[in-house]
Amino acid sequence: MTKKKFSHEVLERLFIAVEEDDIVDEHATLPKIINFQCSQEIIRSNYALCLQFWEDGFNRKDLLGLIIKQLKSSELSKKEQMQYKYIRARYKHLRFAQQLYRKKHQTGFLFSKITVFLGRFQDGFRNKQKNHVDFYGEVLRRYHLNIPVWMFVHYSLRHSQLDTAEGFIHYCREQMRTLQLLIAKPQLTGKEFHGVRKIISQQVSYYDTLRSIDPSNQDATQISRFLAAINGLMGNKHDEMVAADMANLKSYDTPAFLDDTIRSRLELLVARYPM
């Protein structure tokens, strides 16, 4: 792994980009041609920045303290909820980096579980579901955030085998072909909807990282903003689906039509992406 370190200014740009990656800008559009190129240096630099963004953003005790407070039925303050949100955002961004840049394009097992459980814990306290809060909070507190697991996860993150530039480009094109097949369907199950959202989230994380390292890359910024609009629309829909599922009103996996505002943007992305 590269030991490259980035300045505070680069980290701050990435923080702002991640904050914006679900903002729906109705006027955001794509370049007429997406010039998709990559190099080994870009892969190394992107992963190094994503790892530093995670490492420097919080410590284990910060996160554990928030979880324990919520478990004790002490509602987190607005400031603490935002702190939790930002920590989880750093986990998600690094998870996307692992899926994009690692040779096998998979997140490490423990890191993936922690990221998922952090999300379910957050869904629980947002939707006043104490059983979810208690279950996922205890799992995180007892097993995933204890010191030995934390050290093992940290070591594995710093010793990930990264893919070649050619392998990365092939992976992204395969993801876009999958996206093309999914949006050709009139209705999507919850699992398929989640699959589409995962592809978009990975792509927006890639362009967020690129534009943070090189703010003069206008194409990366433009593509990032367009993908963020899709990400935001799908995130809003996801929250509705989760709330309905938790309230036993409608199963998350019930097939449903994809909103036209989302579909039209996805179709434009697939049309302009260099397959």
Rank of each mutant, 00 (worst) to 15 (best):
I114D: 08
R126F: 15
L162S: 06
T115K: 06
Q161A: 10
T115E: 09
G167S: 00
G108C: 00
K130C: 09
I114R: 14
F111C: 02
T164L: 04
M151H: 04
K113P: 02
H132G: 08
F111R: 01
Y155W: 11
S112F: 03
F109V: 12
L110H: 05
T164K: 02
T107Y: 02
K113N: 13
Y136D: 12
E166F: 12
H154T: 09
H154I: 03
R120P: 01
T164A: 07
F152H: 15
R142G: 04
E138F: 14
V116K: 03
Y155L: 02
D123W: 12
V149Y: 00
F109P: 12
E138Q: 14
T164Y: 08
F109E: 12
L157A: 03
F135Y: 14
F109W: 03
F135W: 14
T107S: 01
T115D: 12
L110R: 10
K113Q: 10
V133Q: 13
F135P: 10
G124M: 15
D134G: 04
D163P: 03
F168D: 00
F152T: 04
H159D: 02
Y143N: 14
T115N: 09
N146I: 01
T164N: 01
F168G: 06
G124A: 13
V153Q: 04
G124L: 10
T164F: 03
D163Y: 01
W150N: 12
N127F: 09
Y143K: 08
L118R: 11
Q106Y: 03
Q129H: 08
K130Y: 13
F121T: 03
S160R: 00
H154N: 06
L145G: 05
G108R: 03
R142W: 04
H159Y: 08
E138A: 13
R141N: 09
K130S: 14
Y136A: 00
R141V: 09
R120L: 11
F125P: 10
Q122C: 05
R141S: 14
Q106D: 04
